[in-house]
Simulated scan of single mutants.
Amino acid sequence: MDAYTENPRTNVLSIVSLVTSILGLAVVPIILGHISLAQIRRTGEQGRVMAIIGLVLGYLTLLGYLIVIGIAVAVFVSRGMSGS
């Protein structure tokens, strides 16, 4: 019997998803997070929590960007209509 048992590898895409979400990217961590979760489910690798955190941060960042864009559009439209 071997005393050394190998730990499952950590999925690289889950790490990249987490890092890119911390960097403030929105679409990249969402795509990579979904791909890594599918790979983790299929291969049994570790990294599920990192992938989920990357997904959550990616979706929150995307929501933030959409809110900022919506506010900017509303400001520009209201200034254009008021003639300022």
Rank of each mutant, 00 (worst) to 15 (best):
T5W: 07
V27H: 09
T5V: 09
A26I: 01
L63M: 15
G58T: 12
V77I: 12
I35D: 03
M81K: 12
A3C: 00
R9C: 00
G64M: 07
A72L: 09
S84Q: 05
G54A: 02
S14G: 09
V27E: 13
L55D: 07
N11W: 08
G54I: 00
L66I: 04
A51Q: 09
T61M: 06
M50K: 08
A3M: 00
L18N: 09
L25K: 06
G44C: 05
M50W: 09
I71S: 06
V12H: 08
Q46E: 13
G47S: 05
I69H: 04
L62M: 12
L63G: 15
I53K: 13
R42Y: 12
S14W: 00
I52K: 12
S78K: 15
L23N: 10
Y4W: 11
I67C: 12
S84A: 00
V77S: 03
S21Q: 09
S36P: 08
N11A: 01
I31R: 02
T61S: 11
A38Y: 14
M81P: 01
I69D: 04
S21K: 06
V12T: 13
T61C: 01
R42T: 05
G83T: 02
Q39N: 11
G33T: 11
V19A: 14
M81I: 06
I52A: 09
D2E: 11
I35F: 14
V19K: 15
S36G: 04
Q39P: 00
L13F: 09
S17G: 04
V12M: 08
G47I: 03
Q46S: 08
L25I: 02
L60F: 10
Y4F: 14
L25Q: 04
L62C: 05
N7V: 02
P29E: 09
L23W: 06
R9H: 04
R79Y: 13
V28F: 11
V77H: 07
Q39W: 08
E45N: 13
I15H: 11
A72S: 12
T61K: 02
Q46K: 15
L23I: 04
D2M: 03
I22N: 01
G83R: 14
P8L: 06
I52Y: 06
L23Y: 10
I67M: 14
I71P: 08
G44P: 05
V49H: 05
P29W: 11
V75K: 10
S14M: 01
R79K: 14
V16I: 13
A72F: 11
S84W: 03
A51K: 14
I31F: 13
V75I: 10
I69V: 07
I53P: 02
M1C: 03
L63A: 15
V77G: 00
E6L: 05
L55G: 06
S17K: 06
I30V: 10
I69A: 12
S82K: 15
V68H: 15
L63H: 14
M1F: 10
V73R: 07
A72I: 04
V49A: 07
R79G: 07
G83P: 02
G64V: 02
V73L: 08
A72Q: 12
A26Y: 08
T20H: 14
G58D: 14
A3Q: 00
G80N: 04
V68L: 11
Q46W: 05
E6P: 03
G54W: 03
E6W: 03
P29C: 05
H34F: 13
G64H: 08
L18Y: 15
Y4S: 07
A74V: 02
L25A: 10
V56F: 09
V12L: 13
